[in-house]
Design a protein around this nucleic acid. Sequence first.
DNA 1: GCGATGACAGATTTCAATATCTGTCATCGC
DNA 2: GCGATGACAGATATTGAAATCTGTCATCGC
Lengths: 195, 195
Amino acid sequence: MPPPETPLTPDRVLEATEDVLRRFGPAKATVVDVARALGVSHGSVYRHFRTKAALREAVTERWLDQAHDELAAIARAKGPAAERLREWLATLFAAKRRKAGGDPELFATYLSLADENSGTVARHVETMVGDLTKIVESGLASGEFTTRNPRKTAQALWSATAHFHDPVYAEEWSDPGAELAFADLFDLLLNGLRA
Amino acid sequence: MPPPETPLTPDRVLEATEDVLRRFGPAKATVVDVARALGVSHGSVYRHFRTKAALREAVTERWLDQAHDELAAIARAKGPAAERLREWLATLFAAKRRKAGGDPELFATYLSLADENSGTVARHVETMVGDLTKIVESGLASGEFTTRNPRKTAQALWSATAHFHDPVYAEEWSDPGAELAFADLFDLLLNGLRA
DNA sequence: GCGATGACAGATTTCAATATCTGTCATCGC
DNA sequence: GCGATGACAGATATTGAAATCTGTCATCGC
């Protein structure tokens, strides 16, 4: 138990938690493990996070927000809405595929965290649909798209593309035909959006 | 152990298995339970199904095929393809919603059976996409729809409507807005299909 | 004074002994 | 002869006692 090199911050606790989750998996990772990794008593961890559940929720949120800067930028950008819609969806799909394929065990770990934190996931989905709504609205403004209700259309788009972003379909993402299936679906949807 | 009223047939075994699954759930139902329900020794059950897994697979297949006569009739019928597509999807959605909402515990039981039998489920999905392909082809023939590849389009439709037939989304089916969300999505897709 | 500590109670998990189940097959009785 | 039986071996599940974990808090040392 060496004295702490740096003061204990929520961020350092989160980092240690991620390490412990990586090493032991979601079922075995304990608060005591996190404290041990930090060289402090587990009481100190509880100073920064009220419960183990809160700690795991914070880690989940961090993971879900990972790719969001890039996506938000596409949603905010100028240019043809159709192009940006395709790019936004393709970027999302690519990010998911990278996470799922790169380290399947870690992906499974975060999946089980997401299962525990449906509220956090719902908020994340809200953000995603918000991005899509922005794109649909800009397409409506430019005359590219026709729709009565951009938000509902965005929700329909989110729903319709679930196969390419919902982790329950992760197994199918490594299928060689996945890119083509995505293109087919996107064409159908884009055609539906057009005036 | 009364003597069997009727000769032991695969069908009687299946029926008894369904009963046992209903009563004990997928985790607790055993072959010995099924035999007991039939008033025979468990050895006799193994005369009709090679393994417990085969028995459970047969029950799963039966459950998946339940609503299919009605759907196949819609796919084969005459009339506007758009109408039939809407009816086919609406009928599927209604059937799923009925099963999930009517007896959630039994639904959960069959879900866990489906999880064990991915091959059987894949074959069932093939059948469903086959129905959709028929409808898309008839729409193409009548000039209602435009598409390069009816089968791929049918797959895209299956994908896109997952929120309303994939059991992973069953929780959302009881949401009061579900019908509206379905209508929004269907309109978008139908618009995409049109010439 | 203030963050860190570790003993503690109650909840949860682990582990090993025990019981039950699956699948086979030699044997039975009709 | 032929379907049904139940004893059996190995695999799987259950159970309850022991170990560990979560969350609290009185106390410590800087």
